[in-house]
Design a protein around this nucleic acid. Structure first.
Length: 612
DNA sequence: AGTTGGCCTG
DNA sequence: CAGGCCAACT
């Protein structure tokens, strides 16, 4: 028997939450469903026999004397048992109940409680860190910001509300947390410097004759490769390589096929992008042919442009995109140079016409990864070959490949790519391909090899995405798909990616609940008789355990709100276990219903699009 | 049929 | 953390 199942949010089958709040300064006969900005909240007139928990929420100090606490009660017929007063008191709300019998609380003044500092310090205070935390905060922000690559996408933090879940509705009722001060503008000095370097390199490398034959340019490429990278990789001797290719034409063909395909795909993407730009620009509908310069990222800091002719006279500059795919063929292990260039594509965005939004949503059009910036003779050859017209037959052939490519189910696994280049871009080269090039005696079927390479396309989430997801867990245990898409805007969302992110949070929850259940049982075993003894502070063992899992580097200031949620969770488990509810196979479901309501809004830092 | 949450397992 | 499986839901 399962604990719980179903697609719905854990609270979807819950009755509408009962939110009855009263501001004592107001007419006691006036009740409202919603929030009041009062630090003294009376609970009166509500049928508390259905109450199982409450949610104290801080109220942003939009006005100076608003220091209220909101209470969210929900009905839960399974939890009609009397809960200890301390359970409610412990979370720090001011609570006066006029139904002492139902709530099992005395009605005298002793039941009046005042908000605890902890409960009123969550949310908007989370980011107001002391100066001692600024360094940590900066590092965490770097983690978050470093994963963004779409500077032109604007995000409204309120877009996340889908209204489909009750918890969402409750969050809407809650006053918005005051978020961190406006995001700082990133420094452009690095990007400017990088741009200068690139511009100079660009001039240098774009000087090859356009009339060179593919074969010649291919060998030229090898010479360039040798001159640029051979310093550290003498093992790949040019003579040996060339003689190898000359002796094994079928391998040349194989390599050429790979190159052609990748080029076809890359150019196809560029063309699509340009056409999208043209559609947006619509500057002049005449049919004059224009040349569009498509800068191609290649050869380390080098950059080249492909001139494409289109109808119309708009000139569109397309962000660096395509040629990284060529690095599939020969990946140079020398990566240190590229480290300086990791931020380059995004940096250059500051100096270029802003691409259409469609660009920025395409992960393939975002920043490069180091290995894709290496000097690659095959790539350079291919670029020249393509620039010079290429092979139409090959184009047709690889259009076929492209069709196949798009049908390939993209595997999405956590990729350990650079933190600053989180975007999945291209397949990794099949080691067998490299080996086949280096050791020609190894026979490999070219078709299967190429096909296999297609399947190795590894568009997915990076370890930094995982880190970010874990930090997000401090705010929301049950993120909606919309929130995920907003917070991982640099990821091209597919069903697979979405499922993976959902799976991550499922795993996070699993660990979370297991840990808390363990500590709750431990407290029971140790004879803790009162839930008041179950607090979760930053020094508590439970928090250390959770923090170690979600914030291993301990460089993120965990919001107080998370501690409160953990405390509530632990008390829910404690109470449920102490009441023997764990005999019911689905006893945790009721707890999940409670906890899913305690999600907070995601800070804007997790959703913002930083380009610095 | 597709999606999602939870449980179990490796 | 991911895969498999199942249940619950649309």
């Amino acid at each position: 028997m399962k604990q719980a199942g179903g697609q719905s949010h854990p609270d979807t089958d819950l009755q509408p939450p009962l939110v009855l709040l009263h501001n004592r300064s107001m007419d006691p006969n006036v009740w409202s469903e919603g929030m009041y900005s009062s630090s003294n909240i009376c609970l009166d007139g509500c049928t508390v026999e259905h109450l199982s928990s409450f949610q104290p929420d801080p109220v942003p100090s939009s006005d100076s004397d608003a220091s209220g606490v909101s209470l969210t009660f929900h009905r839960d017929s399974e939890n009609t048992a009397m809960l200890p007063e301390s359970y409610y008191r412990g979370a720090g709300a001011s609570l006066i109940c006029s139904s002492p019998l139902e709530l099992n609380l005395p009605r005298d003044s002793s039941t009046r409680r005042h908000p605890s500092p902890a409960s009123s310090s969550c949310g908007h205070n989370d980011w107001n860190l002391s100066s001692g935390h600024q360094a940590k905060r900066a590092r965490v922000e770097n983690i978050i910001k470093g994963m963004t690559c779409s500077p032109d996408v604007t995000t409204n933090q309120h877009e996340q509300t889908d209204g489909s879940h009750e918890s969402e509705r409750i969050r809407e009722l809650s006053l918005h947390q005051e978020h961190m001060e406006g995001s700082g503008s990133g420094s452009l000095s690095h990007s400017q410097t990088t741009r200068k370097q690139l511009d100079s390199e660009e001039e240098k490398t774009w000087s090859n004759s356009p009339n060179t034959s593919p074969r010649d340019t291919f060998e030229d490429s090898h010479r360039e490769f040798e001159s640029s990278s051979g310093r550290k990789h003498q093992g790949w001797k040019k003579v040996k390589l060339l003689s190898y290719f000359q002796s094994r034409p079928e391998r040349i063909k194989l390599m050429a096929d790979v190159l052609k395909y990748e080029l076809s795909r890359a150019v196809s993407r560029s063309v699509d992008s340009v056409f999208k730009s043209m559609q947006l620009l619509q500057a002049s509908p005449d049919n004059e042919s224009v040349e569009t310069e498509v800068p191609l990222q290649s050869s380390g800091s080098n950059e080249k442009k492909i001139r494409l002719s289109f109808g119309g006279n708009a000139e569109v500059q397309v962000p660096d995109v395509q040629t990284e795919a060529l690095s599939l063929v020969v990946q140079k292990p020398r990566l240190e140079r590229s480290d300086k260039l990791i931020l380059q594509p995004r940096s250059r965005a500051h100096h270029r016409p802003k691409p259409p939004a469609s660009f920025s949503h395409d992960p393939a059009l975002c920043n490069d990864q180091p290995s894709q910036k290496t000097d690659n003779p095959a790539r350079q050859h291919a670029l020249r070959w393509l620039r010079d017209g290429g092979s139409e037959a090959g184009q047709a052939k690889f259009e076929m490949f492209d069709a196949h490519w798009t049908s390939v189910k993209v595997r999405s696994k956590v990729n350990s790519r650079s933190a600053r280049s989180p975007l999945p871009r291209s397949a990794s080269v099949d080691p067998r391909l490299v080996e086949s090039l280096r050791f020609p005696h190894v026979k490999i079927e070219s078709d299967s090899l190429v096909k296999n390479n297609l399947y190795m396309l590894n568009e997915g989430l990076t370890t930094n995405h995982l880190k970010k997801a874990k930090l997000m867990f401090f705010y929301t245990r049950y993120p909606s798909s919309l929130v995920l898409k907003m917070c991982f805007h640099d990821v091209q969302f597919t069903r697979c990616i979405t499922s993976q992110l959902i799976k991550w949070f499922s795993n996070f929850r699993e660990f979370y609940y297991i840990q808390i259940e363990k500590f709750a049982r431990h407290a029971l075993a140790e004879g803790v008789a009162d839930v008041r003894g179950l607090t979760v502070g930053r020094e508590s063992e439970l928090f250390r355990s959770l923090n170690m899992h979600y914030n291993k580097a301990n460089d993120f200031q965990v919001p107080d709100r998370f501690l409160e949620v953990a405390e509530v969770t632990q008390r829910e488990f404690y109470i449920a276990i102490s009441m023997g509810k764990d005999r019911d196979p689905s006893w945790k479901k009721a707890i999940y219903k409670v906890i899913c309501k305690l999600d907070s809004d995601m800070p804007t830092e997790f959703k913002s699009h930083h380009s610095g």
